[in-house]
Simulated assay, not measured.
Amino acid sequence: MKIVISGGGTGGHIYPALALVREIQEKTNDAEFLYIGTNKGLESQIVPRENIPFRSIHITGFKRKLSFENIKTIYRFLKGTRDSSRILKEFKPDIVIGTGGYVCGPVVYAASKRRIPTIIHEQNSVPGLTNKFLSRYVDKIAICFDEAKEYFPSSKVVFTGNPRASEVTGKDGIRGRLSAGLSTTLPTVLIFGGSRGARPINEAVVKSFADFANKPYQVLYVTGDVHFEAVKKEADLIGNPGNVVIKPFIHNMPEVLAGANLVVSRAGATTIAELTSLGVPSILIPSPYVTNNHQEKNARSLSERGAAVLLLEKDLTAKSLVTSIDAILLDKEKQKQMKDKALKLGVPDSAERLFRLMQQLAGKKQQ
């Protein structure tokens, strides 16, 4: 089977695509891949490192306000569609899947016009403009949150979950703790704000050091590379408690997540997929700066089902953070309840589900 994948802009669109590629490679030896992205997106750096053939087109996203730039974007979309169509004609894929980001627009649209089976994968509870547009043309729409159903034609929707969830199951949590310099016996809270960190979370955590020093649990605090030096300097001035480990970045995040009793983080779709697959209780602090406020809606999907606690950034203080952590880590029964409810929302076979859907559509084409 020849497969074209397109997705870009953020890791939230790229990493699920790569998880899907790895799942397919494990299941079959005859799959051939081509990834179409942009030269300026993260995908241009990440995908080639995975030894996946990569082609690029030039496209930009629409501005939500009336702007002359949108006229340029329409031109780029039309050119991107022509360029994508030419690439598809050369590669002759059996199926095309878009995992999000504006680059998917011309690629998936061109595929639909060439009558190639198409799927879009929507990771969030609220879809972006590109997937809303493409929903009219694709054959199937794979979703990760039930809340996303209302935005799409019901006949096309299939619940698959996020392929990233499949990559965290079965990881060694003890090994993850040891790799981060943590005790293997103390209850553990992992705090992070995404790959680049989040200043409001960093500020609240630093102000919590004095309280953390007296707690019967340990804290692994991942600042993000951009903030690490400033945070470390402040920690040294205040006094870094012995039960708080500060890291700029974690490269083996699935293992470290598996070793956590509680996670404090943003509410990105990939993070939520990982947490629910592992059954890790969480305190979610959604970023208020994302499109359609989708992170808050992602977080509410978990908090309303008892799998997470929602803490809005406007309510985030050192006191509210420590109080929220204590309420979970110091209550084993509450931890168990949240873990069980998170596991019920997890889809550890999500990559396999999406692959089966692709096989079905590609098979229909070949009949």
Rank of each mutant, 00 (worst) to 15 (best):
C144F: 04
P117V: 02
I143H: 08
I116L: 12
Y109S: 08
V126C: 02
Y137W: 14
H121Q: 15
V138A: 06
F133A: 13
L134K: 12
D139S: 12
L129R: 14
V103F: 09
A142C: 08
T99S: 13
V108H: 01
G105S: 12
P93H: 10
G128C: 05
V96Y: 07
I141D: 02
K140L: 05
S125T: 07
Q123R: 11
P117D: 02
I120R: 08
V126D: 03
F91E: 06
I143W: 02
K140G: 00
K132T: 11
A110L: 10
L129F: 10
S112Y: 13
G98W: 00
Y137K: 13
R115M: 10
I141S: 08
P117R: 01
I116C: 10
P93K: 05
P106I: 11
N124Y: 08
N124I: 04
G128T: 00
V108W: 00
G128V: 08
K89R: 15
R114T: 04
I97D: 05
K132Q: 15
Y137Q: 05
P106R: 12
I119E: 00
I143F: 04
I143N: 04
D94Q: 06
S135P: 09
I97S: 10
N131M: 14
V108Q: 06
P127R: 03
I141C: 02
I141K: 03
E90Q: 15
E122A: 01
Q123V: 10
T99H: 05
I116R: 04
E122S: 01
I97K: 07
I95R: 00
P127T: 07
E122N: 08
F133E: 05
S125E: 02
I95K: 03
G105T: 14
P117M: 01
N131L: 11
F91Y: 14
K89E: 15
V96S: 14
G100K: 13
E90G: 08
F133V: 10
C144P: 03
I141Y: 02
V138D: 01
T99D: 12
N131G: 04
P117Q: 05
V126H: 08
A111W: 03
